[in-house]
Simulated scan of single mutants.
Amino acid sequence: MSIPAMLSANERNISESTVQDAEGNTYRTVQIGNQTWFAENLRSTRFRDGSKIPTAFIPNDEEENLLKYGRLYDWRDVSDERNICPVGWRVATDVDWKELEKTIGMAEEDIDKKGWRGDGLAITLKEVQPDTMFSKFDQSQVNKFKFSVRPAGIKWKRWYFVQGMYTEFWTASEATEAKAYNRTFAHSCWNWHKGKIYRSTLSKDYMFSVRCIKD
């Protein structure tokens, strides 16, 4: 069957599969352009050598959240040379994320900027994005690339956790001794930036979600 002409080259490059880590966790994966990504957040509690990952926090400490949201990790675990991703995979870098953003349509002049970028592009990576009293969204574009971002929330050290308002992804890229690059997706009802992707640097002590990318 021929591919309809109205599909873009990037859409034609989307394909889905699965991969399993050493603990037996199975993840959906998706090819977007020339990259293959996890389409779910990492859930592993062990590095490749079998040693325990110190953080690996389940959102809200509720086991039923594990499959839906994965685990949250601080950046020291994310960047550990023992690698928290399965063999053949690694934590996506800031450069990897920028390539993804370019593939889904972000303007070249916005790629290297910090802050909210790429209006309308975040919904193509989110699993759901309902309309709000402030904004209407083209539902045909929601999760267009099968990346399935979900609002897992964040954890700050051992004292603070919030779920449902944001998705925060660590990258493997260090910015300073204290900070590393991340990506943010907004989900809260009052946030005006639900259609955009936020690029910034934050304290390595935060615990965020992780997406692995194929080597």
Rank of each mutant, 00 (worst) to 15 (best):
S2Q: 08
A5V: 14
L7T: 15
A9T: 15
R12V: 15
I14E: 08
S15C: 09
S15P: 05
S15H: 15
V19Y: 07
N25P: 07
Y27Q: 09
R28L: 07
V30G: 07
V30Y: 08
Q31E: 06
W37D: 02
E40M: 13
R43I: 06
S51L: 13
S51T: 15
I58H: 01
D61N: 12
E64P: 00
R71G: 12
Y73W: 09
R76S: 13
V78Q: 06
N83P: 08
C85I: 11
G88A: 10
R90I: 05
V91W: 09
A92L: 07
T93V: 00
K98Y: 00
K98M: 03
E99D: 02
L100P: 02
G105T: 07
G105E: 10
A107I: 11
E108C: 03
K114L: 11
L121M: 11
T124K: 05
E127W: 02
D131C: 06
T132A: 06
F134T: 15
F137I: 02
S140E: 08
N143K: 03
K144C: 07
F145L: 04
K146F: 03
S148I: 06
R150I: 03
R150H: 00
G153I: 05
I154F: 07
W156K: 03
V162H: 04
M165V: 10
F169L: 13
W170F: 02
T171A: 04
T171Q: 03
S173G: 02
A175P: 00
E177I: 01
K179R: 13
A180W: 01
F185S: 08
W192Q: 14
W192Y: 13
H193F: 14
K196L: 09
S200I: 08
S200G: 13
T201C: 10
L202D: 15
L202H: 13
M207Q: 14
F208C: 08
S209V: 04
V210K: 14
R211W: 10
D215V: 03
